[in-house]
């Protein structure tokens, strides 16, 4: 097993799943978004959010006393292209404090993204509370995202509602797990038809999640651009016409 060294590299010619024919709407700033995930898919949901936000971010969560809560890993964030020093973690004592802190953050100009991590039913988050958050987001052009873990969707003032889960990755050589892969479903959308499922894969070249497309699938015809750059950095040059 000792020859299995880590290689954070991309497989070539891997066959990926069929692309969806619809464009993926993003988590636009100035709106309230809701993301639903199961208890085990928390990492996938957070990765989906953090991969698309930049700037000063506040993560308001409620520390549960029952089991040791997982803490965010700065290096893991950095790998998603998110600078850990831009993240402020706020521990709220109860639901009301969480909502108040989230609302204050959403009303503060200069905050790029406010993330509210909620768990379970969360009775305080009703239509009124979500409408307040949406209005605050509209005024400050902040992105307010409510991460709802382990609960059923309820009516709210959110612009979009998503469901995020982990997806099996495309393995690398020697049976290693591949790039982070997630499956997102658009549950609801205020300005258009809802529905649609996407299987997204982390694209290190662009620093974003994207749908795996067909263009890299035909082996031997096209040399992908990042590899060209890597070759140049190594001192070798690859002539695309020679390939």
């Amino acid at each position: 097993m000792s020859d299995h060294t880590f290689k954070w590299q991309k497989p070539r010619g891997a066959r990926l799943s069929q692309p969806s024919n619809r464009r993926l709407p993003g988590l636009d700033p100035g709106w309230l978004h809701e993301i639903h995930a199961g208890e085990d898919d928390q990492a996938a949901a957070l990765a989906f959010v953090l991969a698309s936000v930049r700037g000063e971010t506040l993560l308001v969560a409620r520390r549960s006393s029952r089991r040791p809560a997982p803490i965010l890993c700065g290096e893991g964030l950095a790998m998603l292209g998110f600078a850990p020093e831009q993240l402020v973690l706020v521990d709220a004592g109860d639901e009301l404090e969480l909502l108040r802190a989230g609302l204050d953050a959403a009303r503060c100009p200069g905050v790029g993204t406010v993330l509210l991590e909620t768990r379970g039913r969360f009775a305080g988050y009703d239509l009124t509370a979500s409408r307040r958050l949406a209005l605050a987001a509209e005024r400050t052009r902040a992105r307010v995202i409510v991460l709802r873990i382990d609960t059923k969707p309820r009516p709210s003032a959110a612009r979009t509602g998503w469901s995020v889960a982990s997806a099996p990755s495309v393995p690398w050589e020697a049976g290693a797990p591949g790039w982070p892969a997630i499956e997102v479903e658009l549950l609801r959308r205020r300005d258009g038809p809802a529905g649609g499922r996407w299987r997204l894969e982390w694209d290190a070249g662009r620093g974003a999640f994207r749908e795996p497309s067909d263009e890299t699938e035909i082996p031997g015809t096209v040399v992908a651009l990042p590899l060209l750059r890597a070759g140049a950095a190594d001192g070798r040059t690859i002539d695309p016409r020679a390939a």
Binding site: T5, F6, K7, W8, Q9, K10, Q42, A43, L46, A47, P68, P70, I71, L72, C73, E75, G76, L77, A78, M79, L80, G81, D203, A204, G205, R206, G207, P226, L227, R229, A230, A233, D234
Partner: peptide, 21 residues
């Protein structure tokens, strides 16, 4: 990693999780 430049020795960029327990 975001620029997608691959290290040939592979030893420099080691995957780290998003959540630590």
């Amino acid at each position: 990693t975001t620029a997608g430049v691959r290290r040939d020795d592979g030893g420099d960029i080691l995957p780290r999780p998003l959540y630590l327990l």
